[in-house]
Design a protein around this nucleic acid. Structure first.
Length: 269
DNA sequence: ATGCTAACCTGCGCGC
DNA sequence: TGCGCGCAGGTTAGCA
């Protein structure tokens, strides 16, 4: 999926096209996503006006005067803004059509994404979320405090959304590389100074990825169909058995919690 | 409480 | 050309 930089890039891309628009129609072609698209979405949304587009963790919110559409892109989701109606593709599951004829289209081949309706601010999926990684709330102190006595490896630890949100498999791998920390090291056995460094590298790699428009590997594209360029800057993700860009030693690949992890055995300790 | 695994689903690349 | 396998940006529920 889209990790946080891809979701934030999407938010920035769609917001100017949506704010102020009035919803004229909602077309649900495939309601069977990670959670079923609520049948009342159309009657609830029609006639309302988009006030803003916001983000929390990897969730996007189309905020209207009557409630919020809560969208998750899952592993393969993307959103597109179209000037007018174009015949949908196989995986174009949902359109929100505006009064001026333009539309927001949700595409998701693997259907791990979701489109839900939120009245107010509360939803079970939003409880227990950790801080935003780019906020001041997220720091080395935060990681250090929460990791004490934890035996889990540091990589799954920083990918745990209760600890910090928005850090997925790509950026967890990249941040650990820049921090010089082995992904398999127990989270509870990492010092405060090293967590200070790691919090910095997480913020840094996410910020740079947002500037580059995210990382395009397969499915992810921006709202106008263009790719993100951060893949060119990846140091370890997807580079198993290739030389480390710093020390030239072969990068190693392991599996952690069912996800592949690539790291440099020399630069990361 | 913590941590691991399977599950959800489709598509693609690879070896045979 | 086709088949089966393993893998892919996420996250939750369920069980040890």
């Amino acid at each position: 999926m889209p990790e946080l930089p891809e979701v934030e890039t999407t938010r920035r891309g769609i917001e100017p096209h949506l704010v102020g628009k009035r919803v004229a129609d909602v077309l649900v072609r495939q309601p069977a996503l990670r959670w079923s698209v609520p049948g009342e979405l159309k009657p609830l949304l029609c006639g309302s006006r988009i006030v803003s587009v916001s983000r929390r963790a990897k969730y996007l919110f189309l905020e209207t005067d009557t409630g919020k559409v809560m969208i998750h892109l899952g592993m393969s989701g993307s959103l597109g803004v179209l000037k007018g109606y174009v015949a949908p593709g196989k995986h174009d599951h949902l359109d929100i059509v505006f009064a001026d004829g333009s539309l927001l289209r949700f595409r998701d081949p693997r259907r791990f994404g979701s489109v839900l309706w939120l009245e107010g601010d509360d939803h079970a999926l939003l409880r227990n979320l950790g801080p935003e990684p780019l906020s001041n709330e997220f720091s080395g102190r935060h990681l250090h405090v929460l990791s004490r006595r934890r035996k889990a490896a540091v990589k799954p630890f920083i990918m745990n959304s209760r600890i910090v949100v928005g850090v997925g498999n790509i950026y967890a791998s990249e941040a650990l590389y820049f921090a010089g920390i082995r992904p398999g090291r127990a989270a509870g056995r990492i010092s405060r100074p090293r967590y200070d460094h790691l919090a910095d590298t997480i913020k840094g790699v996410l910020s740079r990825a947002i500037e580059a428009g995210g990382t395009t590997l397969r499915d992810y594209v921006r709202e106008d169909g263009s790719p993100g360029y951060f893949s060119q800057e990846l140091m370890v993700y997807g580079r198993a058995k290739q030389p480390c860009r710093f020390c030239q030693k072969m990068l190693k690949e392991i599996r952690q919690a069912g996800r592949s992890t690539v790291f440099c055995p020399t630069c990361q300790r």
